[in-house]
């Protein structure tokens, strides 16, 4: 099977044309300017991952009612809606510092959801 993949590792946005076999192994890949493109493509074919960013409610802040949050590593795409449901049920209180863990080890992945900014 042939696929076109856009590597999002860096701003170069290399577009890779890859061919994969039935076991989702890459047989050939062209278009990547560096080896990170191939690593990205391998993951993309098997189990695509993205950083998930969203918000949680925050109480007790002067100017904010939402705290932006993100996963501290790329999270399998298939888990994004699960984590969104957990975030909907979550609320924190000010103050919060950037990097504070809001939800640890989501879905047993070892990936944390952390605060994207500080709110006093």
């Amino acid at each position: 099977m042939k696929m076109r993949i856009c590597c999002t590792t860096c701003p170069n946005e290399c577009e890779l044309d890859v061919e994969v076999d039935e076991n989702k192994h890459i047989i050939s890949a062209v278009g990547n300017k560096c080896p990170r493109g191939l690593t990205f493509a391998e993951k993309e074919v098997v189990d695509p991952e993205r950083v998930l960013a969203s918000t949680v409610r925050i109480d007790g802040a002067a100017h904010n009612c939402l705290l932006p949050v993100r996963t501290d590593a790329a999270l399998p795409l298939r888990l994004h809606f699960d984590v969104m449901r957990q975030l909907a049920a979550c609320a924190v209180s000010a103050p919060v510092k950037m990097g504070d863990v809001i939800l640890p080890d989501v879905c047993g992945t070892g990936i944390n959801v952390v605060a994207s900014r500080s709110i006093a």
């Binding site: 950083v51 960013a53 932006p68 993100r70 950037m98 994207s116 900014r117 500080s118």
Partner: peptide, 9 residues
């Protein structure tokens, strides 16, 4: 790779 608020922070 940062989010907008992280970049600002």
């Amino acid at each position: 790779e940062l989010t907008g608020p992280e970049y600002a922070q």
